[in-house]
Amino acid sequence: MNRLDIEASAARATYLRGLSAIPLGLFFLVPLGLFSLLDAGNSGTGQWWQLAIVALLVILEVAIRHYYRTRFGVARRGRVSWRRAVPNLVFPVVFVGGLLLDMRLHADVASAPTWTRHLSATMLGFAVATLLWHRLNVGLQAHDLRLWGGLTVLAMLPVWGWGGEDSTITQSFMLFGGALVLAGLLDHRLLVASLPTQLPDPPLAVQVTP
């Protein structure tokens, strides 16, 4: 029995509820990514499809939260310490920062440095923010390093934006969405594997036997 192991187990049971990330991943993948790629979000029918998909994803998120609440219980963290507040403050800044940088660079391609045209600040921001969040909240798992570390490196390689001026952001959304779905499944698998085996209550006859 080790204090740190027990605390890590409680943190995993609180934060590694990975299936909750899947609707968000699908939101990036389909309405934000695929619809932009196919340029299908601007037509009347396309907008209805987008709305329908978003509504389905919201229902899915509610169902997943209900599943976790009933199967894994509810825990509330104590007072917010600086150590826990920092990732939650840094996450949106880094997350949105990369996207804003890409929007700025692609809005004025002529004046942007040439070397920035085929990198993805959006993907870099998403991947670094997710790595930071995991590192500070629950600790980095092997699959986090492979997945988000790999995407951090990929974001800095000149493989982006060859399909047009806006394609970097769309490609980043889709890749980030796919990665969120995959990471969610891996986090959930880790959560289930890391919890101790549930012991059944002994039969009543055994309890009353002296």
């Binding site: 894994f72 219980g73 101790p196």
Partner: peptide
């Protein structure tokens, strides 16, 4: 339920 899952106790 949370304590049951994290401790493994019946």
């Amino acid at each position: 339920v949370f304590l049951q899952r994290t401790t493994g106790l019946s």
